[in-house]
Amino acid sequence: MDDSVLIRTVDLVKIYPMGDQKLIALNQVNLILRKGEFAGLVGPSGSGKTTLLNIIGSLDVPTRGSAEVLGEKVETLSHRKAAELRNKHIGFIFQTFNLLPVYTVYENVEFPLLLLDLSASQRKKAVMAALEWVHLADRAKSKPPQLSGGESQRVAVARAMVKRPDLVLADEPTANLDADNSHHILDTMEVLNRDLGTTFLFSTHDQKVIEHLRRKISLVDGRIANDETIGDENRRKRP
């Protein structure tokens, strides 16, 4: 396999049983994503974006076909191996932020590192750096309920980035944010994509996100209907 290929799905099918019927959420999806991409799965509600993201994130398994992520075949991974893959290499950002409510901002960002057995000083350095990226170093001691939506999502970005993963999967990261915060968070992620080379894959139907994408993969009814690279001239200018 080509070294720069990060994700490769082959004839990926996901079927959900719905009583007697079957719901085909993903239908023969063939997708290749390379290192450093800033791509988005775009499509109407129910088109299979989250399903695809979850399989790529090894949170779910395909019904048929294959999904290879960072050289690992998701369909054959054990639970333990899948957890390890996520812990070491994949960062998640959710629509609803999903911060751990009883932990401080600092502790939330530190969490993935605790699972990685890093030393206390290594953790501290990484957490502070991640908080700097999202401009929240001064809120380290706050608890999630004290944060605004934009701040919460920035904490989530820091938490996803703190271990410097190869891949960040963001499922509708701006759905609960206003325009300013949406652009702000995407700007932050673009900078991280550029500076750290982290690959980003979004799922969205938000025009504001689409404006930032360098690749737009359109899903319709579980199939890839269109896949286009967007040149810089067509992208939103960074402020």
Partner: peptide, 9 residues
């Protein structure tokens, strides 16, 4: 979320 962050069951 814990599982997504890489915690095993």
């Amino acid at each position: 979320t814990l599982m997504a962050l890489g915690m095993t069951r």
